[in-house]
Design a protein around this nucleic acid. Sequence first.
RNA 1: GGUGAGAUGGGUGAGUGGCUGAAACCACCAGUUUGCUAAACUGACGUACGGGAUUACCGUACCGGGGGUUCGAAUCCCCCUCUCACCGCCA
Length: 423
Amino acid sequence: MLTLKLLRENPEFVIKKLAVKNFDAAAIVEKINALDQSRRSLQAELDSCLAEQKKKAALIGGLMKEGRKEEAEAIKAEVASLKAKSSELDRKSQENNSELESLLVLLPNIPCDQVPEGKGAEDNVVVKMGNEIPELGPDALPHWELAKKFDIIDFDLGVKLTGAGFPVYKGKGARLQRALINYFLDINTKAGYLEVEPPVMVNEASGFGTGQLPDKEGQMYHANLDNFYLVPTAEVPVTNIYRDVILGNNDFPVKMTAYTPCFRREAGSYGKDVRGLNRLHQFDKVEIVRIEKPEDSYAALDDMIAHVEAIVKSLGLPYRILRLCGGDMSFTSAITYDFEVYSAAQGRWLEISSVSNFESYQANRLKLRYKDADGKTQLAHTLNGSSLALPRVVAALLENNQKDGRIWIPEALRPYTGFDYID
RNA sequence: GGUGAGAUGGGUGAGUGGCUGAAACCACCAGUUUGCUAAACUGACGUACGGGAUUACCGUACCGGGGGUUCGAAUCCCCCUCUCACCGCCA
């Protein structure tokens, strides 16, 4: 959520910036500011009415004790009429504020200055590329064929047990998953991220805190008997650790990492782009989350990007880093960098990480604040990124490293897998 | 699943109708004392919104959440949620 203060003090700025996200905010901003205005005047009126009510009611006890019954009764009558007035004002202001609130959540986060303009994926800017794209022979197979050939991932069995998008990893396939998770967690903790193992189901308040609810309700699996949601990413439980928290000025930086399975309904996405590991309903991901002071958040973002890049580099996968354009960014993000790896047999770039700074947008919803050096309470900044999401890493590893009838495991990973190749 | 107890500020915990935005203690913060540490003493110590000469100040709301009774509710009533304990079951 954007803050009312910003909208009130700098509406033109907000409108201009949201245009970068192709969002026409003019009408909403104007409405919000009108409602904000009435919110304040209603509250001022209500407060003074309540103050008078309170003062008068307090007199009654004393008058009764002194036996001045008639005076007491007179005041009672006055209070009664004040009460009628204040409850009417209260009703009005509640109505006003809930309308305000419902408009406020419609506004996406404003993109920061570096975000390029653009409509969609084709307008994203490639800021960096690394590692070589391998030359594969004409008999190279896509990963779903390789998975079958080596019997390491069984999509059909997943269909039997659950449904499409819930693969079963077997043998070296399963071991590879475990190796990648441990490898990523080890790198992250070495870089100072605290390892956290959170619940994979969250309550409604947590879903709201990070912005999945109410807008993306249909994208999460819902355990309706208990009203819990299966997490679509570790970002949700991990960031919510700091919901309703006021940090001290010296509690920074907060750096956390977590592995969780992620569950996504992916309602409405079908077709060839979702084949094999490209898009799943359940997948494994290691996430990093940071909470920073506003003045430090962009340095933290750079640090996270370098960190994720080092991991991708170490796996030897050809990668590129994209700065997403306004039209392709998420609702809540101020800036997002996507990491993609090249999956050679498919001939496609696959997104394996998304690193974002949310500035104070999430923090405002989460009520995540800190006391600055002057003792003032301010909203903190939140950031997160995948480091990394497994399935597409696996897809690219399988496809790019097929050679001589084997799939070769990158050096860095071998201590974790315990084998050098899959055959 | 059964039974019972409970939810008060960062923590422990007092408070059964007005003098309680809330005792006391602990923790935290600032200061004094001190060779250092510790201890002792002094002071400050919730959040949000609003008003305002916009760091002093004032008002209102908040004692799990919602509703009700009353001139007045942390305190009485109703509903909901959650937590804990014991029993049963169980990785």
